[in-house]
Design a binder for these strands. Structure first.
Lengths: 193, 193, 193, 193
DNA sequence: CATGAATGAGGATTCATTCAT
DNA sequence: GATGAATGAATCCTCATTCAT
C-alpha cells in the first residue's frame, strides 16, 4: 500500500505538480481513502521528502561506485556518470523531474540534507574534472566548477525531452554528449573556411 | 499600477512559485487591494500568460535580429544568441525562471502560442547549426536537433546558479560556453597521456 | 442612453436573472462603462424598481379603463382583461417574467407600493367576478377570491410558454381561456358515456 | 447531517433564493462549517439538483400510479392528480417553489433530465385529456396541449398563495378547481341574462 | 489497518459602489 | 454627461489535516 501510494504520487506529482495534486487525487487513484494516506505518512511534505531522498541517495551511491572504481580512467568515469543519468530516465524520469521542480516544497528541516546530496553529486563531477585537468586529460583552461554545472544542466534537462523508446538509443545519446563535451563541434578539417 | 503588479508578481512567482503566491500576497506588497488586481487582470492565469508572452516575444525578436544580420557568421551568431540569454539574467532572470517552471499553469488556450514561440526560438538555433554544418563551420557528424536542445538547456539553466554580479563577467561566461561547445574540453596537446 | 440601459437590463434580467446580471454585463452590451450606469441610476435595485413600476402602472391603468367602460358587460370585460395580458406578451413579456421572478430583490421601501399595485390588479378582477355573480352572469357557487387567483395564475403563466408568433393567434388563445373559464371542458352532449 | 443540510437549504432557498443563500447561511443554521457542506456535496449546484430531482421523481412516480390505475375514470384521475399537487403543498411546498424559480441554476448536464421529467408530468396530463376527449368525457373542441398547460399553471401557482392550514381545506380547493375546469363559471340557470 | 466524518484556514473571483476628473 | 481607477465585502470552493471508531 505504501509503495502504491508513492508510485501514484510520483505519477501525479510529475503530471500535475506537487501543489496541484491533492491527497485525495492520490488515494482516489488507488481506491483508498485520505485516512489511509495519513496512516502511512505524517504529511504530504513527508511523502515528497521520501521521494526526493530515495531518488538522490540511490543516484549518489551509484555515482560513488563509478568514481571509486580504479579500473576506469576519467573519460570512462565521465561516460558512466552521464550514462547513469540517461539510463535512469526510463524508470526514474518522473522522480527526477519532480526533484528538479518541487524542491521548493521540501521543509526547511530536510532541505539542507537534500540540497547537500545534490551538491555532493555535482561536486563529485567537479572533482573528477579537476582530477582530469591535473592529469592532463582535460584542458587546463577550463573551470571545473562552471563545467560541472554545464554538463549536469545539459544532461539533466534530457529528462524533459528525450524519449528512451525513440529512434536514438541511450548509448548513442551519451556518446553524443561526450563527443560534444570532449571535442566540441567546430570543424577543423580542410574544408574549414 | 499595472506595471507594479506585474513586477511584484514576477518577484513573488520566482521566489515562492505561482501557486504559492496569492493575489493578496501581490497586492499587499504594493499597498493595493485584491479588487485592484482584478481591475487590471481577468485572472491570475492571465497575469502569468502576460509575463510569459512579453518575455518570450522580446527574446524571440532579438534573436531574429541576430539571425538576420548578414554581417555576422555562424560563430558570431551563436555567440550573440548565447550572450542574449546570459545578458538577460540580470534584468529578466526572474521572468525566465518563472517561464521554465510555471508553464504548467498556462491555460490551454494560450499554451499553444507560448509553446510555439519557445519552439521557434529553439528551431532558430537548430537552423543556425544546420546552416553552419552545411557551410563547413560545424562538424557534419553532429545532430543539429539534439545539439540545439543541449546548448539551450545548458545555457538556460545558467539562470539558476549564475550571479551576474559575481567574479565571472557575462562575457567571460559566454566565452566559456562557446569554447566548450566549439572545441570541447579534451586536451590534445603534447602533455596528453 | 437611460432608455438603452433599461432595455438592455430587461433583456438580460429576463435571460439570466437579476442577481446573475452584473452592471458591467449591461453596460458592456451598450458600449458604456459602469460609471455611466451610476450617472443614470442610484443603484441596481432602483433600476429593477423602475422596470417593475412602469410595467405594472401601465397595465393597471389599462385594466381600469376596461373596467370603467360602461358599454361592456362582464363577459366582455373579462375577455378584454385576458386579452390585455396576452397581447402584452410580445412587447412586454420580458418585463412580465422579470416581475414574477425578481420581486424578492425589490427594496423594502418600494415593495409595498409594487405589491399593492399587483394586488389592485387582482382585486379588480375579483370585483368584476363578484359583480358578475351578483348580476347572475356567473354562477353563485364560485368563490371570487380563489377564482381571481386561478384565472390570473393561468393566464400569467402564458408568459412562459406561449409564442405569439406561433400557430395560435392571441385572439384564439384568449377565446380558449374564456371558453374554459365560462363553460368548462366537460362534455354534456348525447355522445357522453 | 446530509439530511439536515438539505432541509435547511430548502428553507433558505425558498425564503431568500438560491443565489442569495450562501453556503455559510446554510451551515451556520445547523452549527456546522463550510467544510462539512463540501464533504457531502460537490457544489452548491449539486445540492440544488438533488432537491429538484428528489421532488420531481417522487411526484412523477405518484402521478404514474394514478394514471395506471384501471379502477379510475378520467374525471377521477384528473381529480387525483390535482389533489396530488395540492396535498403536497404542506410538506413539499418549499421544494416546489424552489423548482419553479431556480431551474435556471441547474447545470447544463442535469438540465435535460429535469426538464424531461417535468415535461413527462405535463404530457401525462395531456394524454389523460386526450384520452378523455376520445372517450367523450371531455368536449372535443378543447386543445389538450394548451389545456394541460392551463390546468398545471393554475394549480401549480397555488403554491404561492394557498395556506393549507387556512379556512379552505385541500379537498375543497381541489373540488373548486375541478368544478371550474369541468363546468366553467357561466351561469346557465333561468336567472341568466 | 483503514475509514468516514468533520474542520478551518486559505485563496480565487465577482461585483456593486464610490469618486475624482 | 461620462469615464476609469480603485475598493472591499461577500462568496464559492479546495484541501491538508485530525480523530474517533
Amino acid at each position: 500500500m505504501k509503495g502504491k501510494i508513492i508510485q501514484t504520487a510520483i505519477d501525479l506529482f510529475d503530471e500535475k505538480g506537487f501543489k496541484e495534486t491533492s491527497i485525495e487525487d492520490i488515494t482516489d487513484n488507488i481506491g483508498a481513502t485520505k485516512g489511509t494516506f495519513y496512516y502511512y505518512f505524517k504529511s504530504k511534505q513527508e511523502l515528497l521528502k521520501d521521494i526526493h531522498l530515495s531518488f538522490i541517495l540511490d543516484l549518489l551511491q551509484k555515482q560513488e561506485e563509478i568514481i571509486r572504481d580504479p579500473s576506469k580512467n576519467n573519460y570512462q568515469k565521465l561516460y558512466d556518470i552521464i550514462y547513469l543519468i540517461i539510463s535512469g530516465i526510463k524508470t526514474k524520469g518522473k522522480s527526477a523531474r519532480i526533484i528538479f521542480r518541487e524542491m521548493r516544497h521540501i521543509e526547511e528541516v530536510h532541505l539542507e540534507q537534500i540540497k547537500g546530496k545534490r551538491r555532493d553529486f555535482r561536486l563529485n563531477v567537479q572533482a573528477l574534472l579537476e582530477d582530469g585537468i591535473a592529469k592532463g586529460h582535460f584542458k587546463n583552461n577550463v573551470r571545473a566548477d562552471i563545467l560541472a554545472f554545464s554538463i549536469l544542466d545539459m544532461v539533466n534537462r534530457t529528462y524533459y525531452w528525450y524519449n528512451p523508446d525513440g529512434e536514438i538509443s541511450e548509448e548513442e545519446l551519451v556518446n553524443y554528449y561526450l563527443e560534444i563535451i570532449l571535442n566540441g563541434i567546430k570543424n577543423r578539417g580542410p574544408e574549414h573556411n
